Simulated assay, not measured.
Amino acid sequence: MRIEQAVADRLHLAREFSGCRLDCSHGFEVIKSHILNFYDEVRVHDKESLSTLKPEDLYALYRDLDEVAHLEVGDRLAGLILEDVEIKRALHTIRSCYSAFFDYHEIHLARDLLNSQSPWSALKSFPLYPRYRALIKNQVKAANLSLGDTLAFLGCGPLPITSILLGRIYGIGSVGLDSDPRAIEIARECVKHLHLEDRVSIVEGDESGLEGIEWDVVLVAALAEPKKRIFQEIRSVLRKRGPRKVCYRTYSGMRAVLYRPVQPGDVEGFRKVREIAPRGKVNNTIVVLELKEDGRDI
């Protein structure tokens, strides 16, 4: 019932928004109403109750929010929506739900993968798999990754799809880091089940672990926190080791309803050298940084 209602709501949203000019007041009211209705639905949940939802119901919740995030609105309208007082009050809860979706849905998928005799088929059946393929393609392009490079991925989670696809499709090695012991255990099992141990290693730890491993490029996951501390540590490591490529994933436009974007203060001491905006249903903007010569913002 939950899934059927979610589909009906998304169709209603599409009809309501269709034909509306990018910055019209009607569009603002349509989107605001949908966001606040979503907030009313998810605020009764906490992480524990979300973890008990069936995978299909959890994904239906995600799709409700995802449809809003991918509406084609102008920058002005997106800014007005995200700065609305009522919406701003709801954003913490909404973004917590989005984060919890990945925590739990990836665990469900990892279990399916580990129980499958055809793990690659199980992975490709993941509804978001095409998005990951497109995102990784953007990642390789943005960081100019090539054979011989090693990517350090901060916040790899229980199913390190970035590392898995880099190794499988592009032959690029990576080290996934995560501070959650359960996520690390599951991630290692997935890598082993996919026979990628020669290209992907998983390490328990946060950004402080960067100093003890070899890497050419570091990638900060969109949901990795706290961002300011992470980039401060990366800056410290680069001062000791010399220049390295630094990348992060963030959210822009209406997609910023999904999760708090990286703020300028988070990346103090770096300068932006490249940015690739998402296209289609991809969520993340990819940004490449370099350390400023004096290590400070100016």
Results as ranks from 00 to 15, higher is better:
Glu4Thr: 11
Glu4Asp: 11
Ala6Gly: 14
Val7Lys: 14
His12Leu: 13
Arg15Glu: 15
Glu16Thr: 04
Cys24Tyr: 15
Ser25Leu: 13
Ser25Val: 15
His26Arg: 15
Lys32Trp: 09
Asp40Asn: 12
Arg43Lys: 13
Asp46Tyr: 01
Lys47Gln: 14
Ser49Tyr: 02
Leu50Glu: 09
Ser51Cys: 03
Ser51Ala: 03
Thr52His: 14
Leu53Arg: 03
Lys54Gln: 09
Asp57Arg: 11
Leu58Asn: 00
Ala60Cys: 08
Asp66Val: 12
Val68Ala: 07
His70Gly: 06
Leu71Ser: 02
Gly74Arg: 07
Asp75Cys: 02
Asp75Pro: 08
Gly79Leu: 14
Leu80Lys: 08
Val85Asn: 12
Lys88Val: 04
Lys88Thr: 03
Leu91Lys: 13
Ser96Tyr: 06
Ser96Ile: 08
Cys97Asp: 00
Tyr98Thr: 12
Ala100Ile: 10
Ala100Phe: 11
His105Asp: 15
Glu106Val: 02
Glu106Arg: 09
Ala110Gly: 08
Arg111Tyr: 11
Asn115Pro: 10
Ser116Gly: 06
Ser116Val: 02
Pro119Phe: 09
Pro119Asp: 08
Ser121Gly: 10
Leu123Val: 12
Pro127Ala: 02
Pro130His: 09
Ala134His: 11
Ile136Cys: 07
Ala143Lys: 01
Ser146Gly: 11
Leu147Pro: 14
Ala152Val: 03
Leu154Glu: 01
Gly155Pro: 01
Gly157Val: 00
Gly157Asn: 01
Gly157Ile: 01
Pro158Gly: 02
Pro158Met: 00
Leu159Val: 00
Pro160Cys: 00
Thr162Leu: 05
Ile164Asn: 06
Gly167His: 03
Ile169Trp: 12
Gly171Glu: 00
Asp178Ala: 03
Asp180Cys: 08
Asp180Trp: 02
Ala183Ile: 03
Ile184Met: 05
Ala187Phe: 03
Leu194Arg: 10
His195Cys: 11
Leu196His: 10
Glu197Leu: 10
Asp198Asn: 15
Asp198Met: 11
Ile202Leu: 04
Gly205Arg: 00
Ser208Ala: 14
Leu210Tyr: 13
Glu214Val: 12
Val218Phe: 11
Arg229Pro: 08
Ile230Thr: 05
Ile234Ala: 11
Val237Asp: 02
Lys240Trp: 00
Gly242Asp: 02
Cys247His: 03
Thr250Gln: 10
Ala256Met: 05
Val257Cys: 13
Val257Ile: 15
Pro264Trp: 08
Asp266Ala: 06
Arg271Phe: 06
Val273Ile: 05
Arg279Phe: 07
Thr285Pro: 01
Ile286Asn: 01
Ile286Asp: 03
Val288Lys: 11
Val288Ala: 13
Leu289Asp: 00
Leu289Phe: 05
Lys292Asn: 12
Glu293Ser: 12
Arg296Pro: 05
